[in-house]
Simulated scan of single mutants.
Amino acid sequence: MSASGSTADTNRTGRDETEEERADRKWAELIQEVRVAQTGVQILFGFLLTVVFTPRYEDLTDTNKTIYLVTVVLGAAATGALIGPVSLHRLVSGHRVKPHAVVWASRLTFVGLLLLLATMTSALLLILRVATHDGYVPWLVAGVVAWYLLCWFLIPMVVRQRNSLK
């Protein structure tokens, strides 16, 4: 039996932990995950910010400039969503709302991953359009997006579903 006086904590999670202990564990796991995504999006966003200041930017077609602007905005939004859990934790820390904070931080992280997917897709489209003008670019981008979807979402969902049936 858990400290809260019920066996529900153990039955749901397979662990003997209170709601607060579970929130602490989930928070630590989430922050580790966010660190990986944050680093990637911040490097990509930093690189994107420099493109507009290069001489080659003026040579881009209007379509490519639009793709660039969309990519920068998506990168900024992804950065905001992935840094959001840190700010959330800082602002609610000590107010006894960690279980709720974990839920909201998890949601922000998921949105951040979706925005990172969109940013990576848009950046790849722009780079390949500038590097080559061949008609296979959309197909190549679609293939990479399919790979991201498989790695980031489909495999985890299959693992979750298969293990939840046990």
Rank of each mutant, 00 (worst) to 15 (best):
W27G: 04
A28K: 13
E29P: 11
E29S: 13
L30G: 04
L30T: 11
I31S: 06
I31Q: 15
E33V: 12
E33Y: 08
E33H: 10
V34E: 04
V36N: 13
A37L: 14
A37N: 13
Q38W: 06
Q38H: 06
Q38Y: 08
T39Q: 13
G40A: 07
G40S: 07
G40L: 12
V41N: 07
Q42H: 15
Q42L: 15
I43P: 10
F45T: 14
G46C: 09
G46H: 14
F47Y: 15
F47E: 06
L48I: 09
T50H: 07
V52C: 03
V52K: 14
V52N: 04
F53Y: 07
T54W: 11
T54H: 03
P55E: 05
P55N: 12
R56Y: 13
Y57I: 09
D59I: 06
L60H: 13
T61N: 10
T61Q: 03
T61F: 12
D62S: 10
T63Y: 10
T66W: 10
T66G: 09
I67D: 04
Y68P: 05
T71N: 01
V72E: 00
L74A: 12
L74Q: 05
G75Y: 07
G75S: 08
G75Q: 09
G75C: 10
A76D: 04
A76G: 15
A76M: 13
A77G: 11
T79V: 12
T79Y: 14
G80N: 07
L82V: 07
L82I: 02
L82R: 02
L82Y: 00
L82Q: 02
G84R: 04
P85C: 02
P85R: 05
V86G: 05
S87Q: 08
H89A: 07
H89P: 06
H89T: 03
L91A: 14
L91H: 14
V92T: 15
S93H: 15
S93R: 15
G94Y: 10
R96L: 05
K98I: 04
K98L: 15
A101M: 12
V103M: 11
V103F: 11
W104I: 11
W104Q: 09
W104E: 05
W104G: 08
S106Y: 06
R107D: 00
R107M: 00
L108I: 00
L108W: 00
T109R: 03
T109C: 02
V111I: 15
G112A: 08
L113G: 12
L113K: 14
L114K: 01
L115K: 04
L115N: 03
L116G: 02
L117I: 15
L117F: 15
A118N: 04
A118V: 05
T119G: 09
T119V: 02
M120P: 04
M120W: 12
M120K: 04
T121H: 11
A123K: 04
L125S: 08
L126C: 01
L126F: 01
L126N: 01
I127S: 05
I127M: 04
I127G: 03
L128G: 02
R129Q: 10
R129N: 10
V130H: 06
A131T: 11
T132A: 13
G135W: 12
G135I: 09
Y136T: 13
V137E: 06
P138T: 01
P138N: 00
